[in-house]
Design a binder for these strands. Structure first.
Length: 421
RNA sequence: GGAGAGAUGGCAGAGUGGUCGAAUGCGGUGGUCUUGAAAACCAUUGUACAGCAAUGUACCGGGGGUUCGAAUCCCUCUCUCUCCGCCA
């Protein structure tokens, strides 16, 4: 959510920049400012009345104490009238505040000026491509066949006990998954991130804090009996650690492994086959809270960090800068990572690294004190480092050989084996 | 699941109708002292909104009510803790 004062200060600029996201926000913004003007006026009137009321109450107290009950009763009547008026004004103020909020949540984050225009993912800009596209042997297979052939994942068993999109990992397939989690966490903690293992269910307030609620309610599994939500990403619990916090020192760096639960209604076919899209999947997330002046520098460092992991895993990958049309509602600037999955001959998104600037922080009330002692919004950033299933798919597809599936060197200390036969 | 207790500033903890945005202690910040540090002492130390400012208003878990006046009384919701039960 954007801050109304920031909108006031940068009105024209914001409207221009939002065009990059293909959004004409001029009506929303004008409306928000008009309502806010009204809110200010209402508050001034209300404050004045309340001040008068407070004063009267004090006088009445004094009069009673000195035994002047008659005079007190006169003032009482005046006080009652004031009370009624001020109450009406306060109600109006609360209503206005809600209306303003309702408008503000409809305005997406302002994209960074460097964000290229564009309508869809087709307009994203490839910044660089690293690694060679592997040339596989004849008869190379997609991962959903390999996982069956080598007895790594039992999709059928998952269907039986839960449903589609809930795979069961077995044998070396399970070990490989565990190895990837441990490896990613180690890479992140080595880079200075503090490891957390958060709850996998969160309350309603946390859903609001990171913006899943109220809009994207359908994306999350909801345990209605206890009104808790299964997390769609570790970003939700981890970012909410810092809800209502005034930060003393920058940066704050967190990493967490969690399963992620997504209802993901409506998508079919080859795109979502096998591991490509799941209702439950594992992900290791990195989150940073940073001073506004340093957040873009940090974004670059985070991109570097994710790159280094993919380098070590010897996976060919592309870094894309998302165009305005593909940028998420809350993001100001996002880089996507896609790895090449040779068995499917497709690029698969495995990480998304974003700077949300103060957009999340405003909703979270995540702030710091500047050199003048004024509270300011922190900037928040996050990224996947990394999402498991598609990495897993690319790893086994790209490394399939006549002898078996080879494990990259970096991962071998974690798997304890160098080939799956 | 049953019974009980509680929720106050960064933390601990007082406050049961006006003198309370709130005692006191700890912590934080600034200063005095010191070669430096510690100790001691002095000062300062919540957030938001409105206002150029002076200042005003709101906030003592959330919401509602009683009252001229509520941290304090009433209703309601949420959460936490303790004991019992169940259980990895």
């Amino acid at each position: 959510m954007l801050h109304i004062n920031k909108i006031r200060e940068n009105k024209e600029n914001y409207i221009e920049l939002l065009k990059i996201k293909n959004i004409d926000a001029s009506d929303l913004i004008a409306n928000a400012i008009a309502k806010d003007d009204e809110r200010k006026a209402t508050q001034q009137q209300a404050d004045e009345l309340l001040a008068k009321g407070n004063q009267l109450a004090k006088q009445i107290g004094e009069l009673y104490k000195t035994g002047k009950a008659v005079e007190a009763n006169v003032l009482k009547e005046e006080s009652s009238a004031i009370k009624e008026n001020s109450k009406a004004l306060q109600t109006k103020q609360v209503e206005l505040e809600k209306e303003i909020q309702d408008i503000l949540v409809q305005i997406p984050n302002i994209p960074h000026p460097s964000v290229p225009a564009g309508k869809s993912d087709a307009d994203n800009v490839t910044l660089k491509q690293v690694g060679d596209i592997p040339v596989l042997m004849d008869g190379a297979k997609p991962h959903w066949e390999l996982t069956t052939d080598y007895n790594l994942i039992d999709f059928e068993l998952g269907n039986k006990i839960t449903g589609a999109g809930f795979p069961v990992y077995t044998n070396k397939g399970a070990k490989l998954q565990r190895a990837l989690i441990a490896y990613f966490l180690d890479k992140n903690t080595d880079a200075g991130y503090t490891e957390y293992l958060p709850p996998h269910l969160v309350n309603e307030a946390s859903g609001f804090g990171t913006g899943q609620l109220p809009d994207k309610e359908g994306q999350m599994y909801h345990a209605t009996e206890d009104n808790l939500y299964l997390i769609p990403t570790a970003e939700v619990p981890v970012t909410n650690f810092f809800r209502d916090v005034i930060v003393k020192e920058f940066p704050i760096k967190c990493t967490a492994y969690t399963p992620c639960f997504r209802r993901e209604a409506g998508s079919y076919g080859k795109e979502v086959r096998g591991l490509n899209r799941l209702h439950q999947f594992d992900k290791v997330e990195i989150v940073q809270i940073q001073h506004p002046e340093k957040s873009y520098e940090t974004l670059d460092v985070m991109v570097q960090h994710v790159s280094s992991i993919l380098d070590e895993l010897e996976l060919p990958y592309k870094i894309l800068q998302l165009c305005g049309g593909d940028l998420s509602f809350t993001s100001a600037l996002t880089f996507d990572f896609e790895v090449y999955s040779a068995g499917q001959e497709r690029w698969l998104e495995v990480s998304s690294v974003s700077n949300f600037e103060g957009y999340q922080a405003n909703r979270l009330k995540l702030r710091y004190k500047d050199e003048n002692g004024k509270t300011q919004l922190c900037h928040t950033l996050n990224g996947s480092a990394l999402a498991l299933p598609r990495i897993y798919a690319a790893l086994i597809e790209n490394n399939q050989t006549a002898e078996g599936i080879k494990i990259p060197k970096a991962l071998q200390p974690y798997t304890g084996f160098d080939i799956i036969k």
